[in-house]
């Protein structure tokens, strides 16, 4: 019997990091670990490690994290190449 059953998996659409034009870069020295970037990431691409850890395989580069960071600890840098 065949019907449209799908299984949960990361990378449903592949490594969506390739969609990115700007790359969020965290400056740990400024980070206050408020986790605002984590809670607002539309991609679940920020992990709560010692500092916020951005998963560049999947981050689509929307920049919500940088926009919301209360201490400007995240900088959006144009991707090279």
């Amino acid at each position: 019997m065949k019907t449209t059953i799908s299984y949960p998996t990361k990378a449903g659409m592949g490594k969506t990091g390739s969609w990115r034009v700007f790359r969020p870069v965290l400056h740990e020295d400024k980070c206050i670990k408020c986790w605002i970037c984590w809670v607002f990431c539309p991609e679940s691409a920020i992990e709560r490690d010692e500092f916020p850890k951005i998963d560049y395989d999947f981050c689509k580069g929307c920049g919500v994290c940088a926009n919301e960071c209360p201490v400007n600890a995240i900088e959006m840098r144009r991707e090279e190449k």
């Binding site: 449903g12 490594k15 408020c34 809670v39 607002f40 539309p42 991609e43 920049g63 919500v64």
Partner: peptide, 29 residues
């Protein structure tokens, strides 16, 4: 507080949402 929210994620990385999508933000929470 934000720090108290569970770390479990039920909306997985690498989905088809547009960058900056509000729906995944809402559904994650």
């Amino acid at each position: 507080s934000i720090k108290d929210l569970p770390e479990n994620e039920y909306v997985l990385e690498g989905n088809a949402a547009c960058p900056g999508c509000p729906i995944t933000i809402a559904l994650r929470t």
